[in-house]
Design a protein around this nucleic acid. Sequence first.
DNA 1: CCAAACTGGTTTCATTTGTAACCATTGAAA
DNA 2: TTTCAATGGTTACAAATGAAACCAGTTTGG
Lengths: 145, 145
Amino acid sequence: MDVLELENFLPYRLYRLADAVSREFSTIYRDRHGLTRPEWRTLSGLGQRGSITATALGEQSAMHKTKVSRAVAELERRRWLTRTADENDRRVEHLTLTKAGLAAYREMVPLAKAFERELLAKLSASERAAISDGLAALEGALGKG
Amino acid sequence: MDVLELENFLPYRLYRLADAVSREFSTIYRDRHGLTRPEWRTLSGLGQRGSITATALGEQSAMHKTKVSRAVAELERRRWLTRTADENDRRVEHLTLTKAGLAAYREMVPLAKAFERELLAKLSASERAAISDGLAALEGALGKG
DNA sequence: CCAAACTGGTTTCATTTGTAACCATTGAAA
DNA sequence: TTTCAATGGTTACAAATGAAACCAGTTTGG
């Protein structure tokens, strides 16, 4: 009979791995600041790109617009970001980190990098290359459709 | 200033890719049978392993026990599986696919394999090797802690 | 024996999520 | 213009999720 081996099935392996890594990483921003993943991504997207719109943020961090909307609302409530209206298009708002938001970002970046470094340190150089190349290839394949 | 490039950050890349692939794949079992992901995994775990317990199913398919419990309940409602009590331990129940469940499984397996094949077909042989090795290495690294 | 402590599995409750509907504004077309 | 489709963003509602409490039943240690 034709059987599917789940543990070798690419979608399953990817999901399982992403879930494990993401869950582990989430303890960092959760413990430190009580952030959810969408909030962390928003913070991190804004820190990386400076002032951007909610739509751009959604694209850059691969989040559904409702997630962005809610994360932005929460960070605004914390006074970690401010919205400023666009001059030309009144539907658009530009998001910018406040001093407090920037401080949180600056504090998080080294922790995030350390997490990644420690994870990759468990691999050999060729394994690191393999993951890097493999993910890039898949990203490319999905991009095309 | 120290910036984190989200698009090169491993946890983000993994999650994004897994989400995209999984979302795409989910249309197959959703359109065909209206299954959720936990339900699909349950079906597929049972098809692969024959008769197993809910706990074993959770371990094999990396699902929280409440997910397993609910997915099993739904598949039972559809009469795709049956539970039989363990002789020695009355807490344990062994899950087995019914004829209908097995039929659904047999129908899904080729679709799943085709999906994976088509995805991998977009990569070169060396890229396929890279993904395979890279994921295996990460799985190993996480396993150890 | 009998009382913890533990395990397989379910349920409850609060939180997170996605879909779809929505509001306001803008751009294009008639 | 006026209308109609599209776009940025929010909200309402339903479904999915996880943590913790729970209910058997089982094991362990006194």
